[in-house]
Design a protein around this nucleic acid. Structure first.
Length: 236
DNA sequence: TGCCAGGCCCTCTTTAGGGCCTT
């Protein structure tokens, strides 16, 4: 990214869905935390050295009923099921969800940078699929940061040789445990994982902000995970 | 029929294989 197009707001997000990409999953829960760049630059830390979440923080978390069942593994780790969501009378990822997302993002100062862990391979393509299903779009200057390749790349650049330390895991939970010697809370709820992601980001905020400025990808260049059939009422 | 993501990264590599990472 050029200096002129530096992201002003970072939107940390996580999806819970019906499975992995091989089953053409649908989103069942989405959580987004929007934080202005100024609140990320110099994060405060508590007495244990763990970053404290910025006080000025917009949150949005939504559950929705998928049209297809969860894989057994997805249901096991998320605690969600199509039956449970339907019983709570949650609508699917419909036009209302798309408009709510747009409204949430629209009230943040742009340009926006979406942040997700393994986002390039999972969250961003799946979100694009669901938005495409609704004929919805994000602000055209939106960019994306994936903390998985970013943190691997930063460690490589800093000479944290994996050979010397053994192959280190870069799963979100492993990063949290490595940085803070504690268990992440509420793993595999969308909001819990965004909370974990944000603390991991804050631990290395200066480096990741610089990485985002240089290497964030344009949302327009994110391909959908799969091409969904058009939603009812959106057929040509 | 039988299979089923896939890009990235590491190493017992490079004429390849296997595991990670997301649900």
């Amino acid at each position: 990214m050029s200096e002129a197009s530096q992201a002003e707001t970072f939107v940390f997000l996580d999806l819970e869905a019906t499975g992995l990409p091989d089953v053409d999953p649908e989103i069942a829960e989405i959580s987004l935390f929007a934080i202005h760049r100024s609140s990320l630059k110099h994060p405060e830390r508590d007495e244990a050295g763990v970053p404290v979440l910025p006080r000025v923080l917009d949150k949005l978390t939504l559950c929705m009923s998928p049209t297809r069942p969860f894989t057994a593994k997805a249901s096991e780790i998320t605690g969600l099921s199509a039956e449970g969501l339907a019983q709570c009378r949650k609508a699917g990822f419909d036009g209302n969800v798309a408009r709510t997302l747009r409204a949430f993002l629209g009230r943040q100062a742009g340009p926006l940078c979406l942040v997700a862990h393994n986002g390039f391979d999972y969250d961003f393509p799946l979100l694009r699929t669901e938005l495409q299903r609704q004929g919805a779009h994000l602000p055209p200057d939106t960019v994306c940061l994936d903390t998985l390749p970013a943190l691997r790349g930063l460690d490589r650049a800093h000479g944290h040789a994996t050979r010397a330390q053994g192959r280190r895991s870069y799963s979100l939970g492993s990063l949290f445990r490595r940085y803070f010697q504690a268990e992440p809370r509420a793993a595999h709820s969308a909001e819990g994982d965004v909370h974990t992601l944000l603390l991991v980001f804050l631990h290395r905020a200066a480096e990741l902000l610089a990485w985002a400025d240089e290497q964030a990808r344009r949302w327009a260049h994110i391909a959908p995970m799969y091409n969904p059939p058009a939603a009812p009422g959106l057929e040509a």
